[in-house]
Design a protein around this nucleic acid. Structure first.
Lengths: 345, 345
DNA sequence: CTGTTAGCGCCTTCAA
DNA sequence: TTGAAGGCGCTAACAG
């Protein structure tokens, strides 16, 4: 790889001059600039960002850690974050934690060593790495948490407005005539999950429906586990739900598989609403009523906040907790109770 | 951020000694090692990879460019590549080209400046950046193309075995009794698309079905465009197909929307098979028969080849073109022609 | 074993 | 407007 020195030699100027034409920080005569540019082209010179970063102490890089790239919600978020970053000249390094705390720890450390200037973080489920986050911020690297907001860590965050989003979904089920609505949540160690549970309860209370704790089902975020939990619950003797609300995508998928396994059709045997789109498209049946999070915007806004912290570190605004509203996409799976089943095949 | 010098001071040793305990390249007495490690912990020291890379000329970083992170196929591929990379201590920087040639060019340049040691590339559709790829390789940065294999560029590649994969899908339609099978392709400037078209033709020939050029429909890779093209063709007077084969996921989605728009049900009005999964799950109807590419393995194998080139640059094995077999997931959309329609709702 | 030091490629004063 | 030179943080000889 060509170096700035070789470019200088070929152009017959000093390295300083080459640097000046590259950065544009100092005027250079037309003649020299031309010969420098010619040399750059001839040598296929690409400035060494590694060296530049060492000198300037600026990497123009942001990191983002997500639990799983193959869950559609996260790539959308990344896309939003990347758009915001690019707009300000930063690039984004995206990595998977596999929802694993050890790996998350390693990645945090790795990205710090790589001198990212800020971190976007969707924490892995389980114990929040609050110490690591705090150290990161102490080291002057701002952190913004997305989607999953950890407990008791004074860190900026962007996520959906969980309580009202859950209320939206559950309230809709209520309005469609359902009364025994079960909720399937992820680990309640995640604040979002607790808030969504809260939204569920509020929606029921507002509707004057009593709370039945046997209808609150908790699982981890693996669809297989969810399927198992639901299958058991649905086979347990006793009053069964007439509707199910799932608080996130992987959970929703697990619920669907349980229903399928037990031969329960939605909405006729069981109404169903979930957070997050399960399929890309509306073409497929059953079409699932969904609480849609503004994934791209969450990413975009989080990156904006992060960049703000990076570029104006002094302007120590206090903690920002941005909550974006969800929207409801009403589809078949929450069709009004007791309605005549559609006769179309 | 603490530097190696500060660690050395606090531990009362030289920077050389600190470096030795970090890299493990030179033995250090137990006593000094302990005090160094204590200092590292106390200072929350994270070695500066930027400086290290400048010195060692090793970034331990691979780049991967994909057209669109939000198409499920690509995250899977990335995951595979990341697994292979991590196994050898490399990390992966993944970026979107938005299937845009200019942006791809910028990214290639950026990643070169960032001194990635190798590139995985899913080329944007349109003109292949052969010059850029060649320059990259001339500069000693190996490149492996995934999925979409560009024309006439002597570069390693990993993708599905396109011809036989298409044959698999089309042959299946034939075996289910369909005779007028239309194919919807992406841009034929992509070699894969041409090969898939070839596979389609071979399957027809083997079945003794004459080729009808009016059944070869070409679109770009945007679902909206595909929908438009299909809608027009399906409304054109003349003999209509009884089945459609789509050569990739976005195209398949576009086809589905066109069918839906025209009120055509699959498989009763029109059988359908597509490359790539359209939904994550089997629960949804119509369940689409799919030619499944081994996405994760494609990424994994490509990264392995790349790493091989990086670590053993001398062992100049000639060009590697790895073709992996696809599998067929038979579902409802290709149900046997004229079969009684299932009566279950 | 431990310390000293040159230099990776670049940017940025500072002087000419 | 141009050139010369120091030094960013680290590793890898090399000397002790």
């Amino acid at each position: 790889m060509a170096t700035i020195k070789q470019v200088a030699e070929m152009a017959g100027v000093s390295v300083g001059t080459v640097s000046h034409v590259i950065t544009g920080s100092v005027p250079v005569s037309e003649a020299l600039r031309a010969s420098v540019e010619a040399a750059i082209r001839k040598l296929d010179y690409h400035p060494n960002h590694v060296a530049r970063s060492l000198k300037t102490n600026k990497t123009w890089t942001l990191g983002i850690i997500v639990p799983d790239l193959t869950i559609p919600f996260f790539p959308q978020m990344i896309r939003g974050a990347e758009t915001a970053a690019r707009k300000q000249g930063y690039s984004l390094v995206a990595v998977n934690s596999d929802d694993n705390l050890d790996r998350q720890k390693d990645l945090l450390s790795l990205l710090r060593s790589q001198r990212v200037e800020g971190m976007l973080l969707v924490v892995a489920s389980g114990a929040t790495p609050l110490e690591q986050i705090e150290r990161m911020m102490d080291a002057g690297i701002p952190v913004v948490c997305l989607d999953r907001v950890p407990n008791k860590v004074p860190v900026d965050s962007v996520s959906v407005e969980d309580v009202s989003a859950a209320e939206l979904g559950v309230g809709h089920l209520v309005s469609m005539g359902y009364r025994r609505i079960a909720i399937v949540t992820g680990p309640l160690s995640l604040k979002n999950e607790r808030k969504r549970l809260l939204g569920y309860r509020q929606a029921l209370r507002k509707a004057g429906i009593g709370l039945d704790n046997s209808l609150t089902w908790q699982a981890d975020l693996r669809p297989e586990n969810v399927t198992q939990v639901c299958t058991e619950r649905l086979q347990t003797a006793g009053t069964q739900p007439d509707a199910i609300f799932a608080t996130n995508g992987p959970t929703g998928l697990g619920v669907m598989r349980a229903l399928h396994k037990l031969g329960l059709k939605t909405p006729d045997d069981m109404a169903f609403v979930t957070f997050d789109e399960l399929t890309v498209d509306d073409l497929f049946r059953p079409a699932i009523t969904t609480v849609v999070q503004p994934a791209t915007e969450i990413g975009y806004r989080a990156a904006e906040i992060l960049l703000q912290r990076i570029e104006k570190p002094d302007k120590q605004e206090r903690r920002i907790d941005l909550r974006l509203p969800a929207t409801l996409k009403v589809r078949d799976s929450s069709r009004r109770r007791g309605n005549l089943k559609s006769l179309s095949a």
